[in-house]
Design a protein around this nucleic acid. Structure first.
Lengths: 148, 148
DNA sequence: TATTGTTATACTCTATAACTATA
DNA sequence: TATAGTTATAGAGTATAACAATA
């Protein structure tokens, strides 16, 4: 049986994602942010997260990597960290007013980016794309290395 | 008019692409490669490229970045570089037998990865996905920053 | 002992600027 | 002067391992 004759979908996905994320990165940088910072702010604002492990998980990075970003964000006055009195191992991460302001700006950036991405696509097409992407995600998520 | 109410397609795209490319990276690493090395080998084998600038372009990186990878690949015995007698400014990049061997192995890896990605999708669905991704790509490619 | 998070360190990919060799 | 490529340097993002603090 022949290999898939057409252009591999993984290649198309990788190239599209790279182009799209570079464009988004550039916009975020103009607005004073970056992708990890945006994802961290977004997670903090839209999810109730009990600790940094959960936050790291929501963003899709390791705990130490999150610490790295939080250090920079704290240095830049975007977040504060303080011990949870109820469990002093846990650090409560909170947005400062500057952090909330940046969140607002980056949200505008993200909305504009998405509007641009959707240009010329019907909402049915976007929904279909989203659903197909989710299925790809599931296909690599179930880590069954025995797939030959 | 309200912002897109649903989950931003850019976020779904970014998360899917990250998960998929991490899975692919892991497979490539097991096979002794990496994504940039695979893209370089693929370009060398499937396109007629006149010089390194064109090669860098095909891979989607800067010339200096390409040099960086070629240095490593040459160190590892995968490619050779020699001056083009017709224009001694140009360096002809050629695969060694070891380079061709690695190409073959990585191609198998890429094919298996793609087979896995496509699981449960009809070829019409894959075609539709590919076409939608291409349209997103076009939407960010035309760099018209005046899109509000 | 287990859990939470930080520090130390390093790696990969990428880029820009300055440089060399050739035309 | 212009073009092809390299070298030098740096920065962002990520990771693992060892550690400190707390439970």
């Amino acid at each position: 049986m022949p290999p898939p004759a057409s252009r591999p979908i993984g290649l198309t996905l990788a190239r599209t994602a790279r182009a799209v994320s570079r464009a988004f990165d550039a916009r975020l940088a103009e607005a004073g942010g970056s992708l990890p910072v945006w994802l961290i702010l977004l997670s903090l604002r839209t999810q109730a997260l009990g600790n940094q492990r959960e936050l790291a998980n929501a963003v899709g990075i390791q705990g130490a990597t999150l610490t790295h970003h939080l250090n920079a964000m704290e240095r830049n006055g975007l977040v504060t960290r303080r011990r949870d009195p109820a469990n002093r191992r846990v650090h409560l991460v909170e947005l400062t007013p500057a952090g909330k302001e940046l969140f607002g700006r980056l949200r505008e950036t993200a909305i504009a980016h998405d509007r641009r991405l959707r240009r010329g696509l019907t909402s049915a097409e976007v929904a279909s794309l989203e659903q197909l992407l989710d299925r790809l995600h599931v296909n690599v998520a179930d880590d069954d290395p025995a797939v030959t």
